[in-house]
Design a protein around this nucleic acid. Structure first.
Lengths: 205, 205
DNA sequence: GGAAAAACCGTACCGGTGGTACTGTACCTT
DNA sequence: AAGGTACAGTACCACCGGTACGGTTTTTCC
């Protein structure tokens, strides 16, 4: 059983690497099996078709991303008690984390799926949707905690604000790739942080 | 000469329609030539290969988008003199415009190109880059005008802030498509507007 | 230790797709 | 009349996703 899982993981690793640099469609199965050192038969034993691969890739990516967010927010909560400070610290940590990634952020697989209508496959589409909605509720909770202490300086919907975190990250990745300036993503997150501060700070400076 | 241009335009129209709904790779040349009512030979007479089609598509999309921005900002300048008010009005108009688009925003072709490494083709990559940098300088000018009158309430780089406009739009499109809520994009722009107001308003409310 | 299941390999094949190559031809301009 | 423009038509190729199926090794469980 461990043998099978190892192979499956290797396929996913190889595929993810290729997909993030070349795109999903540009990554052929032949290429994947060559790099993973197995045969086409082996590949199709583990994945029904290429959609199943995309699905697995997204599912795994969501887990990793969620874990990353857990760590960042866990660390932020260790460093402060005030919910606004926690959010500001978390966003800073997130920006630093993305900044330190070699070659910039690997590029979000969710967006990759959105822009290749492989997502016509309902499974992939649904996985994508769940991921985004998960992030929404996560960040929503963060902002809920803030407004209990600090009333917002502008009328904003908190779900929209929660979405803005994902939105700025995704948009930042697109921008970074478009102009080949990897640092853009992190700087965009810092701007979002600036917004959060202005939105909830009782006193402007 | 007009005969050739008409055919070329028809190819682009048909292709754009398919690409925006199905993705670039999922759109076959056979399908395009069928819908445009010509033969494969005709297609390859106008475009060297599929990359050349992508390139033309992006180039044309940039023109349309620029024209759209021109209209929005022109209208905003008609409605106000104060640079901050102009920006706030422009962002509101932009949000409304995107909101009114049937089926949500068509989905930015720039991002489509970013996520399929068609951008391995230097022409496409460069066109993409030029588009994004063009938007940067455009929005940068807008914020430059504002800071001459209103000092920012937070230390921000104006190029980053300019990028944030594009970033929020691109990210908003990704989010909207991921969860199938077309209105997200417009609401994200309204949040950016909220940030701009908080950032430059001398008085908070 | 033997059977069965899991995890593959090898090979052959199919339809679709991007792309090439070359010939033919209607039309328009000079 | 000549020559370029703008295609149509046909034939062909390599690659890719996917299927089919038989054979082989490895692991697991009784």
């Amino acid at each position: 059983m461990a043998r099978g899982e190892d192979t499956r993981k290797k396929i996913l690793d190889v595929a993810q690497d290729a997909v993030l640099t070349k795109g999903f469609d540009a990554t052929s199965i032949d290429e994947i099996v060559a790099n993973a050192q197995l045969t086409k038969s082996g590949f199709f034993y583990h994945f029904r078709d290429k959609n199943a691969l995309a699905h697995a890739l997204i599912e795994r990516h969501i887990q990793v991303e969620d874990q990353l967010f857990d760590e960042v927010f866990g660390r932020a909560k260790d460093l402060a008690d005030d919910p606004l400070q926690v959010a500001l610290i978390a966003l800073k940590l997130l920006a630093e984390l993305i900044e330190d990634m070699p070659n910039g952020h690997p590029g979000c697989i969710v967006a990759t799926a959105v822009y290749q209508d492989r997502l016509f496959n309902p499974d992939v589409r649904e996985a994508n949707r769940r991921a985004v909605l998960g992030w929404r509720s996560r960040f929503r909770a963060m902002f809920d905690a803030i407004v209990e202490v600090y009333p917002a300086n502008d009328a904003v919907d908190l779900d929209d604000l929660a979405d803005m975190v994902s939105s700025v990250i995704e948009g930042g990745i697109v921008m970074a790739r478009a102009v080949s300036e990897p640092s853009i993503t992190a700087r965009q997150i810092m701007l979002l942080r600036s917004y959060v501060r202005l939105l909830f700070s009782p006193q402007l400076k």
